[in-house]
């Protein structure tokens, strides 16, 4: 009986009416439908909060630091002596350490990374590419602490056998190892840029009688230059922020010199040293941590923005 009744009613209700009814009823489905976007929005905002958190913590403590140490002294001081009676907080030794290690790293990473990218994109057969690319991925996935161990226990002893005056901890060895670490990044980003150059351009140049090298160097590389330069800049940014390799292999001397054979400290290594030493909260030493971190943050941010700008602005669409 019941069944036939409901059947009768169904006949009378039009689909349009059912939809209307459905829209008006506040069902569980509708509530979920309204709530989900709001929940997801809150989750998405967490990434912004993270950036805000970084900026606020760094800024707040950095301001405290500059109440004690004048801004000018910090950025022009060539002596960093955070402990003892006559504590001096000049950031230049750390900037020098960071500059030296990054320059050494890029001297290794840029040519080798770019040549690897050219080989993979222009010369290698599909077979070779299938072998080499995963190996580069493995190289990129090795934790930096392993590279640090490698620098200290393997590269440094070899370098010391070649260069007599080299200190047991020096900036040269971590710089080189850091360069090796960055090779996969430069190679893979540059290769993406090279591969994006359309084949018609290569064929055009080959048709004019250019050799493969001339095609690559005078046509493909210039066409992909924005992506290539962006990969270099990202590599530099990576080198500036790299911590464990320099902490382990470069020691903690706050030298302000161009001498590669000496131990030097980078900004990142300084942060590790000070936090490892349990600086009492509220001391100038503790605040210096944040001032250095802020400097580091600003440097890497500028590098990343430059890389984004280059790859957006100078990209040629084919």
């Amino acid at each position: 009986m019941d069944k036939s009744k409901s059947k009768d009613r169904d006949k009378n209700v039009s689909i349009r009416k059912m939809i209307e009814e459905n829209k008006q009823s506040v069902s569980f489905t509708n509530i979920v439908e309204l709530l989900i976007p709001k929940i997801l929005l809150v989750i998405a905002v967490i990434s912004i909060l993270t950036t805000a958190g970084i900026l606020i913590t760094l800024l707040a403590e950095t301001i405290e630091f500059f109440k004690v140490v004048p801004f000018i002294d910090f950025f022009t001081g060539t002596i960093l002596k955070p402990l003892g009676d006559n504590a001096q907080f000049g950031v230049l030794p750390l900037l020098m350490g960071t500059l030296m290690s990054s320059v050494i790293a890029m001297i290794v990473a840029i040519p080798i990374g770019l040549m690897t990218a050219i080989y993979l994109s222009e010369y290698a057969s599909e077979k070779v590419r299938r072998v080499v690319k995963p190996i580069l991925e493995i190289l990129a996935g090795i934790p930096t602490i392993v590279y640090g161990f490698f620098a200290l226990t393997f590269v440094t002893p070899i370098l010391r056998a070649i260069i007599p005056g080299l200190d047991p901890t020096n900036i040269l060895s971590p710089g080189i190892v850091m360069g090796i670490m960055i090779i996969p990044m430069v190679a893979s980003l540059s290769e993406d840029a090279l591969s994006a150059v359309p084949n018609a351009m290569r064929e055009g140049a080959l048709g004019l009688g250019a050799t493969k090298l001339e095609v690559t160097w005078k046509v493909v590389v210039p066409a992909a230059i924005s992506g290539i330069v962006a990969s270099f800049v990202l590599g530099i940014s990576r080198a500036i922020g790299e911590t464990m390799i320099v902490t382990i292999a470069s020691g903690s001397s706050k030298n302000f010199s161009f001498d590669l054979t000496q131990s030097m400290q980078t900004m990142t290594a300084y942060i590790v040293e000070v936090t490892g030493g349990d600086a009492p909260a509220g001391s100038t030493l503790y605040y210096s941590l944040y001032a250095v971190a802020m400097t580091l943050f600003v440097f890497t941010l500028i590098m990343n923005l430059i890389a984004q700008y280059i790859s957006r602005k100078f990209r040629e669409e084919y």
Binding site: A44, V45, S47, I48, T50, T51, I54, T57, L58, L234, S237, I240, G241, E242, T243, T268, I271, V272, T275, L289, Y290, A293, L296, F297, T300, L301, M303, N304, L305, Q308
Partner: peptide
């Protein structure tokens, strides 16, 4: 949000530690 995420990816890990 998108730009923020790509910039977060470039922040050195030690800053996250702080």
């Amino acid at each position: 949000i998108q730009i923020n995420i790509s910039n977060l990816a470039g922040v050195p890990s030690i800053v996250f530690g702080l």
